[in-house]
Design a protein around this nucleic acid. Structure first.
Length: 422
RNA sequence: GGAGAAGUACUCAAGUGGCUUAAGAGGCUCCCCUGCUAAGGGAGUAGGCUUCGAAAGGGGCGCGAGGGUUCAAAUCCCUCCUUCUCCGCCA
């Protein structure tokens, strides 16, 4: 969300930045008009209110002196009705103004590549060569079923499509991933582990930008107006919502493992095989709340944390910088990390690290007190660090042996009771 | 889920419609007095949002949240949230 004042002051700059997404002005022109209208009414209302306050203070005085206050009361009555009339107009304008504002995406950062979509993203670097198999490598969905590790049919029976049971040693491996990822980020003392709720209210979902625009993608508990979280980004970023943090508390680095729930509304027919795209998946998420001046450095630092994690798992990956047409709604700059999948003969996203600048912070009222004692919005960042499901699929595929076993990466063996394969 | 109580600023807390333009105390900041410390005296301490203004400086909102009644609401009414106590249920 944008600062109203900034929309007024730097309107052309914001407009041209948002237009780099290649999808129009996102209602900015209308927003500007409404904002002007809002202020016109506001000034009037406030003048009248001041008059009302001043004059009604005279009433007790009149009473004390035994003077007749009838004329004054009449005047105040009409003043009051005038105010409530204008107030209604004001509320109306403010509502539509705010509603529109929530649908405007963040401004893509200046230095990211210009482009229309996925194809214009830029590959920055690769790590490790994809393995060359001397036998026919199986996709994880085949191998998983053969080994009785993954049960898609029962997942569909008990819930529906895109829900899967994970069994036996494979379930243990996924649990090992969860523990390893959390340990990786927290044992260094860098990130603080949080146990997080798996649902969030409407305000929180609006704070990080999932609502109002992407309501179709969310599982909604209508009884309570709660939403299953699509990522721990929601609960972690909202953790300090409406707070003013002392400067000494910064930067805030937090992480959580949660289940994530996504309706995948627009994804019918994509990745229907395997556990690449599920309605529910486990993920360790990283969130940073930082001072504005350091947020881009913090993004690089976050990416390198995730890279080291993937390297430790010995999975080949590449780093992609998203172009202006592909960068997410709330993000100003995003790096995607993609891991090699033999079954796709390609890299697939396993982590996405973004700098949101103050976009989410404004929606969440996430602030801190700077050196001069002034209150200022924080910058927020997040990144997957990393999902257990996709990572499990990647390990199954990349580490399979000719006889259908899965080699356990060295760093995971302590979490697997010393097993080197399953 | 049922019954009750509560929510006012950093903390405690007064406040049953206009004399509150939110008292008082503690804490905190500064000053005076002290050789230092304690005690004592004095001054300051409502943050945030927003709006007008080049600035200085005005104005509006704010007592858990949102509505309502009224010329006027911390105060009266309604809905909701949170906390506490008791009962019920439950991993």
């Amino acid at each position: 969300m944008y600062d109203i004042k900034r929309i007024r002051r730097d309107f052309d700059e914001i407009l041209s930045a948002v237009e780099k997404r290649g999808k129009g002005d996102f209602g900015l022109l209308e927003i500007r008009d409404l904002e002007k209208k809002r202020r016109d009414i506001l000034v009037l209302v406030e003048q009248l209110r001041n008059e009302q306050k001043t004059k009604s203070r005279l009433i007790p005085q009149f009473k004390k002196e035994g003077k007749d206050a009838m004329a004054l009361l009449e005047e105040l009555k009409s003043l009051s009705s005038e105010i409530s009339l204008l107030d209604e107009q004001l509320k109306e304008v403010e509502c539509s103004f705010e509603e529109l504002l929530y649908y405007v995406p963040n401004t893509p950062h200046d230095d990211i590549p210009l482009g229309k979509g996925e194809d214009d993203n830029v590959e920055l670097r690769r790590w490790a060569e994809p393995r060359v198999f001397d036998f026919e490598a199986k996709p994880h969905w085949d191998l998983g079923v053969e080994r009785d590790f993954l049960d898609f049919e029962r997942g569909a029976k008990v819930v529906g499509s895109r829900f899967t049971f994970v069994k036996g040693a494979c379930a243990r491996l996924e649990r090992a991933l969860m523990n390893y990822f959390l340990d990786f980020h927290t044992l260094s003392g860098k990130y603080t582990e949080i146990g997080s709720p798996g649902v969030a209210n409407r305000q929180a979902m609006t704070g990080t930008g999932q609502l109002p625009k992407f309501i179709e993608d969310m599982y909604h508990c209508t009884e309570d107006d709660y939403f299953l979280i699509p990522t721990a980004e929601v609960t972690l970023t909202n953790f300090h919502r409406e707070e003013i943090l002392p400067k000494e508390d910064l930067p805030v680095y937090i992480t959580a493992f949660t289940q994530c729930y996504r309706r995948e509304a627009g994804s019918a027919g994509r990745d229907t095989k395997g556990i690449i795209r599920q309605h529910q998946f486990g993920k360790v998420e990283l969130v940073k709340l930082v001072e504005p001046k350091s947020s881009f450095e913090e993004l690089e630092d976050m990416v390198s944390d995730v890279e080291r994690l993937i390297q430790s798992l010995e999975l080949p990956y590449r780093v992609i910088e998203l172009c202006s047409g592909d960068v997410g709604f709330s993000s100003a700059k995003t790096y995607d990390l993609e891991v090699w999948f033999p079954s796709y003969d390609n890299y697939r996203e396993i982590s996405s690290c973004s700098n949101f600048l103050d976009f989410q912070a404004r929606r969440c009222m996430l602030r801190y007190r700077n050196e001069e004692g002034k209150v200022e919005f924080l910058h927020t960042l997040n990144g997957s660090g990393i999902p257990t499901g996709r990572c499990l699929a990647a390990i199954i595929e990349n580490n399979q042996t000719e006889d259908g076993k899965i080699r356990i990466p060295k760093v995971l063996r302590p979490y697997m009771g010393g097993l080197d394969e399953i």
